[in-house]
Computed example of a mutant assay.
Amino acid sequence: MQAYKIPESVLVVIHTSELDVLVIERAGQPGFWQSVTGSLDRLDEPLLETAARELFEETGIVADGEQIVLCDWQLSNIYEIYPLWRHRYAPGVTQNTEHVFSVCVPRDIPIILSPREHIAHAWLPYLEAADRCFSASNAEAILQLPRQLAPNPKSK
């Protein structure tokens, strides 16, 4: 097992076609709500694999590639790692690169939280979900949902 977390992660925004967004509350930090997040397990782990693994580990949702399909936004954020969590990274590491994904699911999909990581979940309209997130990059990703999901007129 590696000693330190890799400072490269995924953010997976889970939403319905009506733009309700699933947010989950961190077990170790009550009041800290977020989307699914998680670091690469190994340097050569493909981002899509990381996103699918974290989605399943944190919510029980399986991205099967047919009915439940992860969408890679081809968007990365670099942010300062919160001091609270810097001890998880090698000495001197202060920034993380986060790659954004989303997944559209039915509103009634069963959510099975990892009790080690999260204690509650809520479906909220996307604006409320963004307001609830403690992470600025997570909130911004949620606010971008309508633009990300809009049909691209250039592709017609």
Rank of each mutant, 00 (worst) to 15 (best):
L55I: 05
L84C: 02
L11G: 09
N96D: 12
A27W: 03
C71I: 11
C104T: 15
A141I: 05
G28E: 14
A139N: 09
V69Y: 00
I142L: 06
K5H: 10
D41G: 13
T97S: 08
L11D: 07
A129W: 03
W73Q: 12
P106L: 03
A141Q: 09
N77S: 11
R53K: 13
N138S: 10
T50M: 13
R42Q: 10
I81M: 04
R53I: 10
R116C: 09
E8D: 14
Y4F: 15
P115N: 08
P151E: 12
D108M: 04
R26C: 07
Q67H: 14
Y89W: 08
Q148K: 14
E18V: 00
A27V: 05
R53L: 10
S102R: 05
Q2C: 04
T16G: 01
R116Q: 15
W33Y: 13
P83A: 06
Q148P: 00
G60R: 08
D108H: 14
E128Q: 12
A90I: 04
E45S: 12
D41A: 13
G92L: 10
F134A: 15
R107Y: 02
D44I: 08
D131T: 06
P146E: 03
R107C: 00
P146H: 02
P153K: 13
W73K: 09
F134Q: 09
P30I: 09
